[in-house]
Simulated scan of single mutants.
Amino acid sequence: MKFRFLVIIAVGLLASCNTKTIEINNPNKGKLHATKTLKLVETKKILLDADTAPKPQYIQIFKDTSGIRNFTFLNRYTNSIYFYDYNSLEFIKKITYDKEGPDGILGPMGYHIKTLDSIYVYNMPFIELFLTNGKGQVLTKKSLAGSNNLKKSPWYYRYPQYYPRTVTPFLETPKKLLFTGQFMFSVPDSIINTFKLTANIDYNMNAIEFGHGYPKELYGHGYNWNDQILTDAFLELHPDGDKLIYSFPISHDVYITSLYSEGYQKMYAGSNEAGSISSIQKEIKKTNREILGRSILGQDLYGALKYDKYRKIYYRFICRAIPDATIHTSLEEKPVGIIIMDKDFKYLGETILGIGKEWNWQNSFVTEEGLNIEYLEEDDIDEVALILKIFTVKDI
């Protein structure tokens, strides 16, 4: 927490005081016609041990060489990755990492299983990536912040910070492993053209390159988006295989780019009900938590984009505005919605699930069965199960 505080102070001092504002309109509000909706088709309850709670930081579905779909998740309390059979829901095993020593990983926050002996683990306290085997042993590691001294150097102006979740996963491409981060606060104009979001990591961990920045039309020009919720970046692979798609919270569009070059093509991917999204109308140095809260709670903000290759459709999450929110309103009270689009981003419909206190949309992923979303059962006070609700698309 102390280190995060140092970053906040540095950014606050260096950010521009001449804040301009932008209002991002939804050109298709009220004009779109729904033909599809989401239908609940299955519920899975995964029984947990006494050391494990629902709402894990990170989930990955991994198919092993025997064809078993492993439901895996990170238990930060035990420094372990748990493996369950996704079909039978039976526990298989867990891989536990030391916190200290030659195989120590102090603070794992995300991982990617390429094979059972090639597991990449992100160590958040030191902004580094470990390549490990299936026994919890470290094979090699690499800094994601260059050779900078994390306590003294303003490395965060050049390299992204990472907060991996199930909806912001590592992504496999033929040659590189992709890992997307963000700038945690309002992006200064001095770096808007140079700051890159996504690490392109060689599978052998020999080299790391960085690509794709924030669209200047959204985040440049001194616009105040001074919170990590507003500067989040959600990445998805395009079904063509050679493109990427970014979803930003403040844009009704998504941004498509090449794996191998810069530059974006915009595609509308908005909600029929979402209103305009406005930057904060205060200088950055005068932005307090109450002002940020009103901006985040009082506006519609977009979330992750997930492609369903089995049905050739996209799902885009949206957290709905609470117009009458107060300083006592929780972020978890925002209603969670899902926009459905075809492979060309043609609008098909949208569905409101409920509030974020019940629907942990950040633990969502696609399988052959449909869109899996973690559901938080209010009366599960003993936290005995991790619950997944699975949805498919049906005609209205």
Rank of each mutant, 00 (worst) to 15 (best):
R4E: 05
F5M: 13
L6T: 12
V11N: 00
V11P: 01
L13Y: 06
S16M: 03
S16Y: 01
T19V: 06
E23C: 00
N25I: 01
P27G: 05
N28Q: 12
N28H: 14
T35C: 09
I46N: 12
L48K: 03
A50P: 04
Y58N: 11
I59F: 12
I61Q: 14
D64Q: 07
S66P: 01
N70A: 05
N75D: 05
N75S: 02
N87D: 09
I92T: 14
K93H: 04
T96Q: 09
D98P: 07
P102Q: 09
F130D: 06
T132F: 08
K135C: 09
V138M: 04
S143M: 14
L144N: 09
Y156L: 00
Y156V: 03
Y163L: 10
P164S: 06
V167C: 06
L178I: 05
V187K: 05
P188D: 13
P188N: 09
I191Y: 13
I201R: 13
D202I: 14
M205Y: 12
E209W: 14
E217W: 00
Y219S: 04
D227A: 06
D227T: 02
I229T: 00
L230G: 10
T231L: 01
D232P: 08
L237T: 12
H238R: 01
G241P: 08
F248S: 11
F248V: 14
D253S: 10
Y255F: 15
T257G: 08
Y268K: 12
E273R: 02
E283T: 01
R289L: 10
I291P: 04
I291E: 06
R294P: 00
R294D: 01
I296L: 04
D300Q: 04
G303S: 11
K309I: 15
I313H: 10
P323L: 07
P323G: 08
D324Q: 02
A325P: 06
L331Y: 13
K334G: 08
I339G: 12
K346I: 10
K346F: 10
L348P: 13
G349R: 00
G354T: 02
N360Q: 03
Q362N: 12
Q362P: 07
V366Q: 13
E369A: 12
G370W: 01
G370Q: 02
L376M: 15
E377Y: 11
I381V: 15
I381G: 05
E383M: 03
I387T: 15
K389N: 08
K394M: 07
I396T: 08
